[in-house]
Amino acid sequence: MMTAILRRKMTNGLMMLAMLAATVTVLVPLGLIFFYILKMGFSSINLDLFTQIPKPPGEVGGGMANGIIGSGLLIGVASLIGLPLGIFGAVYLSEYGTSRISTMIRFSADVLSGVPSIITGMVVYGLVVVPMKGFSALAGSLALALIMIPIVLRTTEEQLKMVPMTLREASLALGVPLWRTTLKVTLKSALKGIVTGVLLAVARVAGETAPLLFTALGNMFWSHKLNEPIAALPLQIFNFAISPYDDWHRLAWGGALVLVTLMFSLSLLARWFGRAR
């Protein structure tokens, strides 16, 4: 009896230790990756990174300004397409939809968010790039929008569901039509939560690379036209990282630091919005 207890306690202790070890193992790469991004990033970053466009291969210097601006443009246009779709789609799910149809759409959104983003890029290539006879910023934005929609839809719906029914009833009882109630009362009271979801979705697509490969394509020069290939920060990081040039590696680290900083500011902002409720 005594030995059985001892054995069980030892198993227990070993398992607790194993779980601790696993947790440490999981967190070590995180520490390493951050260490390198900070170390390499800070030593690479300078004003040129934000003001210059890349130099031709092999030459020292240059920056990623066109990529940073390009990413901004891509995300902006993607938001213009994706946010209304996601948000008002969510309004349907929470305010109008019958439960079976809503469940079906919700499920599709979850499945859609699991589709590899490179597939999204291929689909947009077939639907936009081929007919338009060329890679373009618009195609890139569309690909990013397709990735945003399911995320925004699901988070917005969660927020709308939390708005108490009594609030809607109060507005309807005043004779306000349903659509105005939805806009002015329901959406408005869920606004902070929706903004949180939107920021997280933006942070997610800001780092997306694969869907841009054959839509936005990338560009070594300045471009702001929607119908032309455009540079994007993640694309530049990719191209520079796989190049054989040390100075481009340097730029890639600098770009990584910029990208990570941007993403974490967005998610911090999102958290702050989530808290402020």
Partner: peptide, 21 residues
């Protein structure tokens, strides 16, 4: 929260770290 942070890092940055480090 740290694990969530790890999930938010873009794939291209994992790749960068992977290929250069």
């Amino acid at each position: 929260a740290l694990v969530e942070l790890l999930a938010a890092i873009p794939s291209v940055i994992y790749g960068l770290w992977g290929i250069l480090v």
